[in-house]
């Protein structure tokens, strides 16, 4: 059995959660990824961004989304707030880089206006994203510790 790997980041929205990782190695286009499922009022988000080779067609609802940053339209923050309101959001956002302003506004909007229990940690480092794989089980602690089990 392989050894657990532990990473430490900065807490943006705190919480504890254990679940399955879904990994995007490239910038995650928020609007393109969430648009279809949110528009059609689906119970799960199936990533609809055809340019995202890692996650296109994958279910990311209630999973732990691992990504470098978000990219795309400046509506990105509102879209994160929307999927959190619909409760079809990834339960945790884990950023390898410092969080971008669009994702940051989305997380803050979801916490303040939707009272969402979304969890977010940033600055986990490049090695985290190089190590974690889709399907891995991760444990996220409220102090920003992320363990790949």
């Amino acid at each position: 059995m392989s050894e657990s790997k532990v990473f430490k980041g900065r807490v943006i929205a705190k919480g504890n959660f254990k679940g399955e990782a879904v990994v995007s190695h490239e910038g995650f286009n928020t609007l393109a990824s969430f648009q279809k499922s949110a528009l059609l009022n689906k119970k799960n988000v199936i990533v609809s961004d055809q340019n995202n080779k890692d996650l296109y067609g994958k279910d990311i609802t209630n999973k732990i989304l691992c990504l470098p940053i978000t990219i795309g339209s400046t509506t990105g923050g509102l879209v994160i707030q929307t999927v959190c309101n619909m409760k079809i959001n990834p339960r945790v956002f884990l950023f390898s880089m410092p969080i971008d302003s669009l994702a940051a506004s989305g997380i803050v909007l979801a916490k303040v206006w939707q009272n969402s229990d979304v969890i977010c940690v940033d600055n986990l480092g490049e090695e985290f994203l190089n190590t974690v794989k889709t399907g891995d089980t991760l444990e996220v602690k409220e102090d920003g510790t992320v363990t790949i089990l």
Binding site: Q35, L39, T75, L78, V79, Q81, T82, L109, Q114
Partner: peptide
């Protein structure tokens, strides 16, 4: 402001 379009999925926007 950037969000000029009334796309129904953005319901928190309309609520706010």
């Amino acid at each position: 402001l950037v969000t000029s379009f009334g796309i129904p999925l953005l319901h928190p926007l309309f609520d706010t």
